[in-house]
Amino acid sequence: MAERPYIVGNWKMNGSRTTLSEARAIDRGAQRTMKVEVALAPPYTLIHAVSREAGQIGVGAQDCHPGEEGAHTGDIAASMIADSGAKFVILGHSERRQDHAEQAELINAKIASALEAGLRIILCCGETLETRDAGQAEQFVLDQLRASLPKIDDAGERLSVAYEPIWAIGTGRTATTKDIAAMHKAIRGLIDETYGPDQSPDVRILYGGSVKPENAGEILATEEVGGALVGGASLTAESFLGIVVAAAEVAEG
């Protein structure tokens, strides 16, 4: 695990002003676990409000448009996200790839726009159950990453990679620690190859896919797992902080 694990909550299409109390509670809890970097990605409508409430946690967005401005009804530019208080953006999530048919070309354009706006990136990757059962999971994920890893000199500061096997997202299923370790090792090899020994160690590889307080400790203790991208379990302070505490315990050794 990286020296300071990164635990990120992805609220997806959930949350309203009434749930700001959960964000406040998460922020208070994060202040007691300084060995862990904690962040939330609420829906666009709450980014500004959560960033105003948060004293300790990072706040980010779940997506952005590749353009700077213009006639794109319903879209949000990376610069607008940054202006609202966000510090990072999640890109290439499987739900965007599947629900909106996003391909590498579009994801790369979003990455470039986000970096230009000064945002950090969490780049997602992951395979379907069919791909894993066919024995092609590792090759698929590495090809996915090769197509989108940004060519930047400060990757250690600007980039995290989130491995989320699609079949484990919101299903209650998780990959085995053996499978997680093998995939994270393969991803680390590609990051080493891409960014070199100076930057690579600081690029954290997160695991996502039904991470809960009950399994977080085992997952986060797995080799090369530098944190977690958490979905449903991040919606309440009680469950999300359970994961944060597990991360702190692993970090303390």
Rank of each mutant, 00 (worst) to 15 (best):
A162Y: 05
G208V: 09
D75A: 06
G196K: 01
S113R: 02
V230C: 09
Y44E: 12
A104D: 15
G15S: 11
T45E: 11
G9N: 04
L123W: 00
A82D: 06
P43V: 01
G156Y: 07
T222H: 01
Q103C: 03
I90D: 14
P66F: 00
L220K: 02
E130L: 02
L229F: 01
R17F: 08
C125W: 04
L142I: 08
E102A: 03
S113A: 05
E53N: 09
L159N: 10
A175I: 02
A162T: 13
N14Q: 11
A175M: 04
G55K: 09
A49H: 12
S21D: 15
E37P: 12
S200D: 14
E3Q: 02
A221V: 10
S84K: 01
H65P: 12
T73N: 04
E238D: 15
R120N: 13
I90R: 00
V59K: 03
G126E: 13
A168W: 00
T236L: 11
K110Q: 12
E53L: 05
G172Y: 00
L229M: 02
I180L: 07
L159E: 11
K212S: 13
N108V: 06
A147W: 04
L142F: 04
C125A: 08
C124V: 04
A23S: 06
I243S: 13
H93D: 15
A101L: 14
G60V: 04
G253C: 06
R173F: 09
I111V: 12
I180W: 03
K185Q: 11
T33A: 10
Y195A: 11
T18H: 04
A175H: 08
D133E: 09
L145T: 10
Y44F: 07
S234Y: 10
L145K: 00
T174N: 11
I243W: 09
S94Q: 06
G217S: 07
K185W: 08
P213C: 07
A137E: 15
L129I: 03
P197T: 11
V225G: 10
K185T: 15
Q136H: 11
N215T: 03
A39S: 13
L220Q: 12
E95P: 10
R96W: 09
G60I: 02
M34Q: 13
V225M: 10
G70D: 07
G92F: 04
S148R: 06
I219M: 01
I152K: 03
G67I: 02
M183C: 09
A30Y: 05
E37Y: 02
A182Y: 08
L190E: 11
L123N: 13
R188N: 10
V50T: 12
R120T: 14
A23N: 05
L142K: 01
L159S: 13
R173V: 12
V141P: 12
V225C: 08
E69N: 12
E95D: 11
E95N: 05
E95W: 02
E3L: 06
G67C: 07
A162P: 14
R32Q: 14
V203P: 13
L149D: 15
E238A: 05
A246Q: 11
L229W: 01
A247I: 09
T128R: 06
Q144Y: 00
E69G: 08
E164S: 08
I166R: 01
D99T: 07
